[in-house]
């Protein structure tokens, strides 16, 4: 994934806020990229633009040679459905659905049949240690469990890229560690690309590469060659 001169400006009344200022970035296939920065530095904005959830003011993003800005809304949705997964700080599960239903929701949109999607959802939930929580609604589960359900949901479509926006922001240190290990393992195992936003410097150790942002610009890129050889 290649990000070139990406700029995003928001207008609030008369004022114009520049959330991203000519960001250039390349994300390699199969790497774990961590985006660090203070609050309001534009981390989430960058993530949203990369995922095609928002349109840039200027600049472009291309994934495997495909430019997102040229894509129609519908194709973008289909692209997300096929190739992307999302994990958020506040889990964003659908409160009225059970764990199993939440996990299989992306496959429902994709029109796959019930048996197939339930099978996949079960498999993932079991993998993530939620064997006894299939029929539980989000509010009947702990934060860590909910986040694991949301990771299962993000992985159910076998995505190529996983976007995570402060996935451990609401969790205690023990659960944070569990979640991070799950994510790290997934990346190492399956060639999944992970773009994770956080403001917790400690989590950087799990990543292959970290970028630091200030005021919508990338100020520093730290490689951890030891972990990431080639992709």
């Amino acid at each position: 994934m290649k990000v070139t001169a990406l700029t995003k400006k928001y207008r609030i009344g008369q004022e114009i806020v520049t959330a991203l200022d000519r960001v250039d970035l390349t994300v390699k296939q199969g790497e774990f990229l961590c985006i660090l920065g203070t609050s309001g530095s534009g981390k989430s904005t960058l993530l949203h633009l990369m995922a095609g959830l928002e349109r840039p003011t200027k600049g472009d993003i291309s994934i495997n040679g495909k430019t997102l800005s040229g894509m129609k809304e519908k194709d973008m949705a289909l692209f997300r459905r096929k190739h992307m997964g999302f994990v958020f700080q506040s889990y964003n599960l659908i409160p009225t659905m059970t764990a199993l239903e939440n996990v299989s929701l992306p496959l429902i949109f994709d029109g796959s049949d019930t048996r197939e999607r339930v099978g996949k959802a079960r498999e993932l939930l079991i993998q993530l240690g939620l064997k006894d929580r299939f029929r539980h609604k989000p509010q009947e589960m702990s934060g860590g469990q909910q986040q694991r359900v949301s990771i299962a949901r993000a992985l159910v479509n076998n995505p190529r890229i996983l976007f995570a926006d402060e996935p451990t922001g609401n969790l205690d240190s023990k659960t944070t560690k569990e979640i991070m290990e799950i994510l790290r393992e997934k990346v190492s195992q399956s060639g999944l690309t992970l773009v994770m936003v956080t403001h917790d410097n400690e989590l950087a150790e799990y990543a292959d590469r970290c970028i630091y942002m200030v005021d919508g610009m990338i100020t520093q890129i730290v490689e951890k060659g030891a972990r990431h050889e080639e992709a």
């Binding site: 995922a51 959830l53 809304e73 519908k74 949705a77 289909l78 997300r80 459905r81 096929k82 992307m84 997964g85 999302f86 964003n92 599960l93 659908i94 409160p95 929701l105 992306p106 949109f109 994709d110 949901r153 993000a154 479509n157």
Partner: peptide, 16 residues
């Protein structure tokens, strides 16, 4: 609102 947003993020099209 939130639920609709989530669905869009995880791949629901306008049509869905």
């Amino acid at each position: 609102t939130r639920e609709i947003g989530i669905m869009k993020v995880i791949g629901a099209t306008f049509r869905d």
